[in-house]
């Protein structure tokens, strides 16, 4: 769908100084992906997304979207290609002089859609993003979340295959962020749109992305399926981002003390990785085997690919029952299990 080869962007800050904002990125993005790029400010992610529709001219490298090589297009070809790439922005960038309806009509005017077809299309989009009743409001009369909905409707007007999101939720409060993210997932499902989003919030990645790339000083230092990256972060910077949503290792140290204080039973760590079928595991095991299960500590979070996280439990009761229960979890379910401590 989208393939990027050796993409670089070097800014000449003055005659002698150069800043490499994007450094030799090679990457493939599949159709229907929600691909997240995460990094701290200055990591080059914003420059990267702007290179994709050539709001910034690449210094080097090749960008192919939908079998069309964006990086070699001339002015007119580029304009036509851009009409098929939607983009939304951190600060929405709506025209204040136009109403909601007129803002959404704007890209249709640009692509030359006949007047008679515009109104239907605009109404369809207004309903899709949930702004019915606000057609004639001006952007200054809308909240941040509503403005971003207009931005999304505007970006979708020309039925693009790709949607670029440049920190689209960074100016919004957490609750509004969630509603906008839900909307993005919704249009990803409904329209089969490929979404590329950049953010500095791991929460955003966790909630809607299926693939993620971590950026640091212009390079992609780690990429893969969101779950894999959550589960086995290789780089320090990735670990920090994962801690944003999962808590840090300090909590596990506290746990060691907790474990020491249990004088009987077996303490087990259950690891959920993309679980969708075994979420009722604890009650299943408790029903099947004659043991008590005591939940000590844990953190489970939901990602697009299912639940992810770990749970510390204490199993108490008959030794053989406990062994059977452990065997059952290991063999019959996909939950990973680790015996932390065995007392008795």
């Amino acid at each position: 769908m989208i393939s990027i080869k050796g993409l670089s962007k070097i800014f000449n800050t003055d005659a002698h100084n150069q800043v490499t904002a994007v450094d030799n990125i090679t990457l493939t993005i599949n159709e229907g992906d929600i691909f997240g790029f995460i990094g701290y400010s200055g990591a080059g992610k914003s420059t990267f997304v702007r290179l994709l529709n050539r709001l910034e001219e690449p210094t080097e490298g090749q960008i192919t979207i939908n079998n069309q090589e964006i990086s070699s297009l001339k002015t007119k070809g580029l304009r036509l290609a851009r009409q098929e790439i939607g983009m939304i922005f951190q600060h929405f960038n709506l025209l204040w002089s136009r109403t909601v309806k007129e803002n959404i009509t704007f890209p249709l005017e640009i692509s030359g859609v006949p007047k008679t077809e515009r109104d239907d299309r605009v109404q369809e989009l207004i309903n899709l993003v949930g702004l019915a009743g606000k057609e004639n409001a001006y952007p200054s009369q809308l909240s941040g979340g509503q403005k971003q909905r207009v931005g999304i409707a505007r970006a979708l007007a020309n039925k693009p295959k790709v949607l670029l999101c440049d920190e689209a939720t960074s100016a919004l409060d957490p609750e509004t962020t969630n509603s906008i993210l839900d909307l993005l997932v919704d249009i990803n499902n409904k329209l089969g749109l490929t979404i590329i989003l950049i953010t500095h919030e791991m929460h955003v990645i966790r909630k809607i992305c299926n693939r993620v790339a971590v950026m640091e000083s212009g390079k992609i230092v780690e990429q893969g399926n969101v779950l894999d990256v959550f589960l086995k972060p290789k780089q320090d910077v990735t670990r920090k981002f994962v801690e944003q949503v999962m808590g840090s290792n300090e909590e596990e140290e506290d746990l060691q003390q907790l474990i020491q204080s249990y004088k009987h039973g077996t303490i087990i760590r259950l690891h959920f990785v993309g679980e969708t079928t075994n979420q009722a595991l604890i009650s299943q095991v408790a029903k099947k085997f004659n043991i008590d299960i005591n939940i000590l500590q844990g953190k489970i979070t939901q990602t697009q690919a299912g639940a992810y996280g770990s749970l510390f439990v204490q199993m108490d009761g008959d030794q053989t029952e406990i062994k059977q229960a452990i065997q059952y979890i290991e063999k019959e379910t996909s939950v990973e299990l680790e015996v932390v401590q065995h007392v008795n």
Binding site: L55, H91, N93, F106, I110
Partner: peptide, 10 residues
């Protein structure tokens, strides 16, 4: 940003 948005729309 608004000028840029218009450019991004082609």
């Amino acid at each position: 940003g608004v000028v840029e948005a218009a450019k991004a729309m082609g």
